[in-house]
Design a protein around this nucleic acid. Structure first.
Length: 479
RNA sequence: CCGGGUGUGGCGCAGUUGGUAGCGCGCGUGCUUUGGGAGCACGAUGCCGCAGGUUCGAGUCCUGCCACUCGGACCA
């Protein structure tokens, strides 16, 4: 039908991807800047998005028997230092509280960058028997990491997340838990956020400080860079030993529980933006959109329009569609652009002409297509279109990933592909040596994303050193 | 942390050799409009990022700092 106007307020992603991203964050009213570097304000629309993600995850956590708790904000330095790798990993980006009231504190307190240490300390107090296990805990909170470079959603000094922490009788049980939670993240990404994921294990170089194994889901963004969208860690009994968490097992012997932790943060919102957004703004998959459909009344002053709009709103809400009506006195064109910028999947226009025909106009955010629609089966039709948008967004993202996924048999080839394509995923065989990984990083600037669960045999030798290959691995530029 | 860019009404910007802070949009009120960012009229809004310094006088010159932004390094 009519042409889409170009919104000058948003820098095009071809011109400058970074600016395009921050423009959307601001123009879609997701965030505002606070006065302190790296601290962002989540505005109602941004928070609504996070609330929906929380709702989806929290439901799944509870279905799998997890309980929510709340841990302190502050960690005494001595507690943080009990696990060597962990403190080395986090110390460089800790912020410290040194004064309480007007008194200098006897020991400085770290503002939590993550809460493994607090959970361990607590468990040491309350766990004594195998009957106390497993402990399946989660907390929704914010954490603080003093990052040097900050960007909305992708890297804040303070960010909202959930951190799950569990302890189990056996390593097998803990490993199962680690994978179970990774799968919950993957399901959220694929089914709700329409983001295809690659599941895999991090290399020793890339894994979490103090973990035995770190598992990850990796998504590809519009600019062909990878975003680690959720992680799940298996700790073995290392933390338990360091923090003296012990229990008496079924044979009446002293044992150390095996531990996991897993997290997903508001960073995933950055992922949604960079997976689905376009040059007119945000595009939200219907399954996560705070408003799935916005009703824009046309010539609302004319008789019957407001009443009709209200009637349709009521009908659609009854059918469990999340509807927003815009009765503001902005012009229709202004509203169209505004809600497009905000990424609402569907717009319903209703005006005097439609009322005469017992119809309305539906406009899709993903394709720009306008559909004239009779009102009789409105609810069903809207459901159908929403489902189609959800599918379309997933398929588009998958296509982008497939078109930018490659295989390489040598370091030169790997480098050439990444340079020529300006990003993407490249799969190679790998011997498993850290040296090879570091060599790739040094020579090409790219890092390993993961050792995918879905292993492939692309040859017998490591693409970097030529020695015998042990596994396939995926490389890429990362956020 | 290194390098580039930017800070002036809410937003985008202009501001000459230093001499009374301006424009557009938005905002408020009223009327007319309404199917892709509507029109007219009247009106309100400024620690010129912050702190020092030079000067009779600083948005403008000097020093330091802060924030935003892009790229790089670093990063679980």
């Amino acid at each position: 039908m009519s042409k889409q106007i170009k919104l000058k307020e948003i820098t095009s992603m071809e011109e400058d991807f970074g600016r395009w991203f921050t423009d959307i964050c601001v123009k879609a009213k997701l965030i505002d800047y606070s006065g302190i570097k790296g601290f962002f304000i989540l505005r109602p629309y941004g928070y609504a998005l996070w609330e929906r993600i929380m709702g989806e995850l929290d439901k799944k956590f509870k279905e799998t028997s997890h309980e929510n708790v709340s841990m302190p904000l502050l960690i005494p330095e001595s507690l943080l230092q009990k696990e060597k790798d962990h403190v080395e990993g986090f110390a460089p980006e800790c912020a410290w509280v040194t004064i309480g009231g007007s008194e200098e504190l006897p020991e400085r307190l770290c503002i939590r960058p993550t809460s493994e240490t607090l959970f361990c300390q607590h468990w040491a107090n309350i766990v004594s028997s195998w009957r106390d296990l497993p402990c399946l805990y989660n907390q929704w909170c914010s954490v603080l990491r003093w990052e040097k470079t900050t960007r909305p959603f992708l890297r804040g000094r303070e960010f909202l997340w959930q951190e799950g922490h569990t302890i189990h009788e056996t390593g097998e049980e803990a490993e199962e838990e680690t994978i179970r939670m990774l799968n919950i993240y993957a399901d959220l990404c694929e089914n709700i956020l329409a983001m295809p994921v690659i599941k895999g294990r991090k290399t020793d170089k890339e894994k979490f400080a103090g973990a035995v194994d770190t598992y990850t889901i990796e998504c590809m963004m519009h600019d062909k860079k990878a975003l680690q969208s959720g992680t799940s860690h298996y700790f073995g009994d290392g933390f338990s030993r360091a923090f003296d968490v012990k229990f008496q097992d079924r044979e009446n012997k002293e044992a150390y529980p095996h531990q996991t932790s897993w997290g997903m943060s508001t960073r995933i919102i950055g992922g949604i933006i960079m997976t689905h957004g376009d040059n007119n703004g945000l595009i939200l998959p219907p399954n996560i959109a705070p408003h799935q459909l916005v009703i824009v009344p046309i010539a609302a002053h004319k008789g019957g329009v407001v009443e009709k709009a209200a009637e349709l709103e009521k009908r659609l809400k009854k059918a469990d569609i999340r509807v927003k009506s815009d009765y503001s006195d902005n012009s229709p064109g202004w509203k169209f652009s505004e809600w497009e910028m905000m990424g609402v999947p569907l717009r319903l226009e209703i005006g005097p002409r439609d009322i005469e025909e017992n119809a309305c106009v539906l406009a899709r955010r993903d394709t720009g297509e306008k559909i004239k629609l009779g009102l009789n089966n409105l609810e069903e039709e809207v459901q159908k279109v929403l489902a189609d948008i959800q599918n379309n967004l997933y398929n588009k993202a998958l296509k982008n990933r497939d078109e930018n996924s490659f295989e390489a048999n040598s370091l030169e080839e790997l480098k050439a592909i990444i340079e020529e394509n300006e990003g993407g995923f490249v799969k190679t065989m790998w011997c498993g040596d850290r040296e090879c990984e570091e060599k790739v990083k040094e020579l090409t600037g790219i890092s390993s994303r993961c050792i995918p669960f879905e292993q492939e045999n692309l040859g017998e030798s490591c693409a970097i050193c030529g020695k015998k290959a042990e596994m396939s691995i995926i490389w890429g530029l990362a956020y």
